[in-house]
Design a protein around this nucleic acid. Structure first.
Length: 454
RNA sequence: GGCGGGUUGGCGGAGUGGUGACGCAGCGGAUUGCAAAUCCGUGUACAGGAGUUCGAUUCUCCUACCCGCCUCCA
């Protein structure tokens, strides 16, 4: 079995990955806060983790990997959203979760084994907070419960910061009830118009992202293999998560590996809601970009490098995939992934190298292997359902064939050239040999123009 | 200010202490009524400087520029 190396944020370098238990490999991905459509950046770590999940299933066996991804459905942004729209919170979160699952499925992602929701873990969170207070890692102040950062000596280890530095450079307004400026809120009081749960500290709600600690512990145990998310979560989100989990479950090691993906960018700047430079997965789908094309573009860049979404990349991905599908659609052989594909993927999920390998398979006409290796990273899988062929252009093909036969006899090519020009302008690629005609739709297909031709 | 990451040919994008991936575009050829598609062939790169080394794009240091986190953010 090939050695798997993964970049561990905790160590800041690639490390040899060995599962705690090869018959139960456990991974956790920080899922979305559900108040709005997922933007394209949100899809990146889902795709990265999906590749990791598929890869692990291949290496360790389909039933020996457990993948958990949560939904955070308690959050002040959700509360605000509900207020703005005048809708019930539950309706918003349910709807957003349904959208999210639809969008992620369109990108060819498998469902995780578990998708817990924060609202189902409030009792566990309250117990954790009580334990943290008992062990001196948290304290109550003015109806809030705060985690005491000073009580955890390794606070800052993941993000490489010291408590002193952070205080010195702090730009945060410090609440008066905090013993230390960096202490973070585990529980906060809710007014009557806000969602709340009864607790030893009165009616309130979780303050920080305690749910990830509660859910990962419940579903994966107090030590598991991999925890991941976008690199913007390293601080404070994951730093806090480590602190509260390690202090609450001191016998456990929490996550052995931390995987963080780089940000998706727009014109060199991080795509984010606060900058407003985002578009959603749904926007792209509605503009006609197939999910598989989007996935291909994502996998063309290594997950730890920033990447820009561009239509140029999408168009290239589209034509590449169509060329591949053309040769791979009716294969009888069903191969295993190649040793070479496994090897490059073993080196910190080098998906661009896998894609380069796919091109080589295509060059050498090794189509069965091309498909098998593509499947390994979730491309050309049955879920994508032949989008590359689902548009019928046969009546245009017949018309073109007829006009051409005629032109070949009369030697007057005006009509034929005109037809070809129109098809091309409608976004159709024309492929002709001496006796065949084939039309292939591109992403620039313009239905109005196409229909006006015949 | 603190911490982390990046800078590879026209574009995208891997990787390596010594024989310069891969894709797209380009160029030449085959093919074609002409094109396209296809096939064959082909050129160009490692931000700048210093150091280590027989040899550096790859290691070390410095400089420049870019990006992220430190506030909700994947």
């Amino acid at each position: 079995m090939s050695k798997i190396k993964l970049h561990n944020s905790k160590a800041r370098r690639k490390e040899l990955f060995e599962p705690i238990d090869p018959s139960n490999v456990r991974m956790y991905l920080c899922g979305p806060t559900v108040y709005d459509r997922a933007h394209l950046g949100n899809a990146r770590n889902v795709i990265v983790f999906d590749v990791l999940y598929r890869f692990f299933r291949e290496i360790y066996g389909e039933h020996n990997v457990k993948y958990v991804r949560n939904f955070t459905d308690i959050d002040d942004k959700i509360n605000q959203r509900a207020k703005d729209l005048g809708k019930e919170i539950k309706l918003i979160t349910d709807e957003t979760i349904a959208w999210y699952l639809e969008d992620m499925e369109l990108l060819g992602n498998l469902l995780p084994n578990e998708m817990p929701r924060a609202t189902n873990y409030v009792a566990e969170m309250i117990i954790m907070i009580e334990d943290l207070i008992k062990s001196g890692h948290a304290y109550e102040a003015e109806g809030h419960v705060l985690f005491s950062v000073a009580s955890y000596k390794d606070y800052g280890a993941l993000s490489g910061r010291s408590i002193e530095d952070m205080i010195a450079g702090a730009r945060v307004e410090i609440a008066p009830y905090k013993a230390n400026p960096l202490d973070f809120v585990l529980w906060k009081p809710s007014s009557d118009d806000l969602p709340g749960w009864e607790s030893p500290w009165g009616r309130g709600r979780p303050g920080w992202h305690l749910e990830c600690s509660a859910m990962s512990h419940d579903l994966l145990g107090d030590t598991f293999d991999i925890h991941g998310g976008g690199n913007d979560l390293i601080f404070p989100h994951h730093e806090n998560e480590i602190a509260q989990s390690k202090c609450c479950f001191p016998s456990g090691g929490f996550a052995n590996f931390w995987l963080h993906n780089e940000m998706l960018q727009v014109d060199g700047k991080k795509m984010s809601k606060s900058l407003g430079n985002y578009f959603t997965v749904r926007d792209l789908i509605e503009k006609g970009f197939p999910g598989e094309v989007i996935r291909f573009v994502f996998l063309s860049t290594h997950y730890r490098k920033p990447m820009d979404w561009t239509e140029l990349k999408a168009n290239q991905a589209d034509s590449t995939l169509k060329r591949w599908y053309d040769m791979c659609s009716n294969l009888e052989e069903d191969l295993k992934p190649s040793a070479e594909a496994i090897e490059v993927l073993s080196d910190d999920l080098n998906t661009p190298a896998v894609i380069a390998l796919l091109h080589k398979h295509f060059q050498s006409k090794n189509f069965a292997q091309l498909k098998a290796d593509a499947n390994l990273i979730g491309l050309m899988t049955p879920e994508f359902k032949d989008w590359a062929f689902d548009f019928d252009l046969s009546k245009y093909e017949e018309a073109l064939m007829e006009v051409r036969s005629e032109a070949m006899i009369t030697k007057n090519f005006d009509h034929l050239d005109d037809l070809k020009d129109k098809l091309s302008k409608a976004g159709v690629e024309i492929q002709m040999s001496t006796d065949t005609v084939k039309l292939v739709p591109t992403l620039k297909l313009d239905l109005a123009k196409l229909e006006s031709i015949l």
